[in-house]
Write a protein that binds this DNA or RNA. Structure first.
Lengths: 207, 207
DNA sequence: CCCTGTGAATATTTTCACAGCT
DNA sequence: AGCTGTGAAAATATTCACAGGG
């Protein structure tokens, strides 16, 4: 089991390598990869060493084979089922985001409790109330939930999702979720991102 | 100058404290805050100690005064001007996201080079081509750029933004940007987030 | 008495540096 | 000759533990 930081970097190496492959580059050294990502070659080597011995001394890494290894390790050879919880503006934008399908993530269900949204069709998916969660998760083979619900609803929704057996949540609500240890939550908290930038702006202004 | 991790946590403490204040709680100990966020009391104390001595031994932290201190440190007492680059689905969702304005971030310009979008009005802002960037940044006092452009355009857009003097970027494009050291980029890379979850799913499946 | 603020200790992460493979 | 893989060293980050203040 790799630690979170390592996985975050592996995901990025994978993307960089796919970019290079698209440009028909066949081999890359740890130094080359590090340069593109503004990191150290030693870190790239150490991270990649977790995949087993994949580099060729004197040459570097074969890009195609490294991508294959990363795709396997990261679970990107499979297609995962995603449910969207919250059929608002942000939910719609994510639903149409082309990067998800390309990487093997497939929206298979959309939930919303707002009666004006229930029954609407987004592509070939019908918006349903969250009461149908358990059966849909089973029938549609849902693995991941993307939560774009209002902050006051987030914890309750998370409880229902984990009760339905989901263990991977991507949460856009500005709330720290209380979940069991075996559940993974990733936070995509957009206001927090801006507040981090704000600190820098403020610090600059004070100097 | 605080390090990135500390600032990320301060931003979160600030949100938690505002939640508590809304519930009319007046004081909180480091242990209470830590419990809500699943962190250690020592870390909360050390982080907050960077603000100067703000806690009362034997009692804890006065929530109202701590929020004030955090708002000042994080630059949240000011209103910052934000430009949106890329008037697509995701851009629209962010434009309407209520959390931004509430925290003092104000969209003041929208740029897009797509002729079908130029001239459209979003609320009282008109979408303009990015050629007008420099003058708009000056006139509208833009501090932060939110980039929701396609990946192939991202680096070029980032170059233009920094050339116009912007130093704080929130980038939604799945690309590592090459920028000068004094420019801060935060990445909101949604496919990466799912890929991180995918690793966990895969790892679970293999066990 | 209880909790803060903080040096010291511990744990984790990153980098160094080099033996060894191609 | 050039680059990987990796223990050892260095740098960071977190936690401990307690002196001191309200």
């Amino acid at each position: 089991m790799l630690n979170r930081h390592t996985v975050e970097r592996l995901v990025i190496y994978n993307r960089v390598l796919k970019d290079l492959a698209k440009k028909n580059v066949k081999w890359a050294t740890s130094e080359k990869i590090a340069e593109i990502l503004f990191r150290s070659p030693a870190q790239v080597r150490k991270d990649l060493s977790f995949l087993g011995k994949k580099g060729k001394p004197g040459v570097g890494y074969n890009i195609r084979s490294l991508i294959g290894e990363l795709d396997s390790t990261l679970g990107l050879r499979k297609t995962w089922g995603v449910a969207l919880i919250g059929a608002g503006n942000l939910g719609r934008a994510l639903f149409h985001y082309p990067g998800f399908k390309r990487e093997g993530f497939e929206f298979r269900a959309i939930f919303d409790n707002n009666s004006s949204k229930i029954g609407r069709r987004w592509g070939d998916i019908t918006v349903t109330p969250i009461t149908s969660l358990n059966s849909v998760v089973r029938k549609r083979k849902i693995n991941i939930a993307v939560m774009t619900v209002p902050d006051y609803a987030a914890q309750e929704v998370a409880d229902k999702l984990t009760a339905a057996g989901l263990k991977e949540l991507l949460n856009f609500a500005p709330v720290t979720l209380n979940v069991a240890d075996n559940v993974n939550v990733r936070y995509a908290d957009l206001a927090l991102e801006l507040e981090n930038l704000s600190y820098n702006l403020n610090h600059r202004a004070l100097k």
